[in-house]
């Protein structure tokens, strides 16, 4: 894969480029932060949701883009966060922060367990094993309908969504609070991802993606490294899920369905596999594709489908992936 080769080739000059890449990411985050003061009300509301979902995509990309493991079951991690937080808040009366932690923790536990089992497989078998576990999790949300209300789901009501942090009250029903929490979550995850892929561990991940056998022979414990990547990826996805539940007050089984395992894959591929910002770009692009197309026609799926085909013909490595190949090779 050319992306990895590029990175390896530029390994020697990395230090000098450190600032350029970091600055780019900080600049993008600054723009995202600043946008809230200039965009319209609707964009403001939408962007908050897109940023939460982009966090999910960033998490997905750590496993798929950098480690080369294609999971078709990430919805289970997103749902673990969603239900961990949602059930925590609605059934156990946890506060906002505790619920969020409960969601993230559920994701951590689930991804560790799934990782220990599923990582015995690779390639297509890994795809199916993760998909099967995710399907089982989806059915579990229906099976325990008594607590989850199955497909219909749970609504988190008003007072659950008030919190006090650093002595200040925050109301999650306020759009401004929501935007900035979503932004904060995305910013933290993008920076974690950036730090990770530039760290020695990150380079081992890429080495595994390029040639696992070789990485193993060089003395790296590939199983542990892959498990680490999966747990980081799954936990980040769960954080996105937990944030989704608490910010948008709804927890339902549709978020655990196969569709929500495919979506992050699509977002990552669109934006550029194995780029830190690609998932963010992909998620944004997909949202606006659907949103604008549906303004003009109820057959918007057709428009989205055609747009995907055009994009893939022009940008087979995704927007940023193709850009990196042709213009900015230093993009992490």
């Amino acid at each position: 894969m050319s992306a990895g080769d590029t990175m390896a080739a530029h390994g020697a000059t990395r230090r000098g480029l450190f600032d350029k890449a970091l600055l780019l990411h900080l600049a993008v985050l600054a723009v995202l932060f600043g946008l809230q003061f200039v965009i319209g009300e609707y964009q403001h509301l939408s962007l908050a949701r897109v940023m939460v979902l982009a966090t999910y995509a960033v998490g997905y990309n750590i496993l798929f883009g950098y480690t080369g493991l294609l999971s078709l079951g990430h919805a289970m991690f997103f749902a673990a966060g969603l239900y961990g937080a949602g059930i925590g808040a609605s059934q156990f009366g946890l506060g906002v922060q505790e619920s969020f932690i409960a969601g993230v923790f559920s994701g951590l536990v689930l991804s560790t367990v799934i990782g220990l089992i599923a990582l015995r497989t690779t390639g297509v078998a890994f795809m199916i094993v993760t998909m099967m576990f995710a399907q089982a999790c989806y059915l579990l949300t229906l099976y325990f309908g008594e607590y989850t209300r199955g497909d219909e789901g749970i609504v988190l009501k008003g007072d659950i969504r008030q919190m006090v942090m650093f002595g200040y009250p925050f109301d999650l029903t306020s759009p401004v609070v929501r935007y900035n929490i979503a932004f904060g979550l995305l910013a933290v995850c993008v920076l974690i991802c950036l730090a990770l892929v530039r760290s020695p561990t990150g380079r081992v991940l890429v080495a595994i993606r390029e040639n696992e056998e070789r990485a193993g022979m060089l003395g790296y414990d590939t199983f542990r490294t892959k498990l680490f990547a999966l747990v980081v990826s799954g936990t980040m996805s769960a954080a996105a899920g937990a944030a989704y539940a608490l910010l948008f007050a709804y927890v339902g089984a549709s978020f655990a369905s196969i569709q929500y395992s495919i979506l992050p894959l699509l977002w990552v591929l669109l934006g550029g596999i194995g780029t830190v910002l690609g998932p963010v770009v992909g998620t944004l692009l997909m949202f606006y594709l659907v949103d604008y197309a549906s303004e003009y026609t109820s057959a918007y799926m057709l428009v989205v489908g055609v747009a995907l085909l055009i994009l893939v013909v022009w940008f087979p490595k995704g927007l940023l992936g193709t850009l990196r190949e042709r213009v900015i090779a230093w993009l992490p």
Binding site: L266, A299, M301, L302, V304, G305, A307, L309, V313, P316
Partner: peptide
């Protein structure tokens, strides 16, 4: 056209999926 690139093919066939599904609905 995309040279059967494994990753691009996933996006492309998702695109085809959307198109066929919408046409069937219409």
């Amino acid at each position: 056209r995309i040279n059967y690139d494994p990753e691009a093919t996933i996006v492309a066939t998702i695109g085809i999926l959307y198109i066929i599904q919408q046409l069937a609905l219409t």
